[in-house]
Amino acid sequence: MTGQRTAWTRLRSAMRPHASRGNLLPGLLCALLGFAVVVQVRSTQDAGLDGLRQSDLVRILDDVTERSDRLRTEARDLEETRARVTNGSTGSRAALDEAQARARVLGILAGTLPATGPGIELTISDPDGKVGPEVLLDTLQELRDAGAEAVEISSLAGPAVRVVAATSFEAPTDSGGGDGAGRVVVDGTELTSPYRFLVIGDSRTLAAALDIPGGVLDVLRQDDAQGVVTQRDRVTITSLRAAPSPRYARPADD
């Protein structure tokens, strides 16, 4: 009890204002302490990197370097992936372009696309009605041998038929035109004389193939018919044919 009281008493007596040279210096030191505390607190609050010691700075630098290395590796991986993806897409685009070009070529051959190019026009006038389907078929074969790439047969003022690999020539079976002279059924379409072939290919080769001795034009002359060949820089075939879809056949794996 007395100890406690003396402690409080001493504290109270110490707090009593009495100035002496003796406790002036401790007061000065305490002022210095308070000043230093405040200064340190402030500098800690707004301390950036400049408040750190060398070893800490080295450690931070190491951390940053390591981190940037990791990020650089990651960036390199991502760039490689991007390059791979980009190459893949350009590759597939090239494949798509090629496939489309091939589809266009096949469309011309199958008669599903209009075609244009140099070629000839062959007009067969047959006043006596002696030109039958076999003559037209021979004509077509001759044209194919000469490198015809797209062919259309039409009446001069009538329907037109795009010629494809499966094209057939028949004599008319109905009684529409009496004896059937001057008429031919091509792929189910009846054409009447005069006939006109539009052919795309090398025009000079085609014309020469028709004009050889014993060739198409000779045969026509023997039948009292007349064939006229006109070479053209540009022949346009617009008649089309629906693409047949096979019922049974499927593409076979290679």
């Binding site: 707090m15 009495h18 406790n23 002036l24 030191l29 002022a31 302490l33 308070g34 505390v37």
Partner: peptide
Amino acid sequence: MIAAIGLVLGI
């Protein structure tokens, strides 16, 4: 007393 006053003054 002087010490406490000094502390406050320093702060």
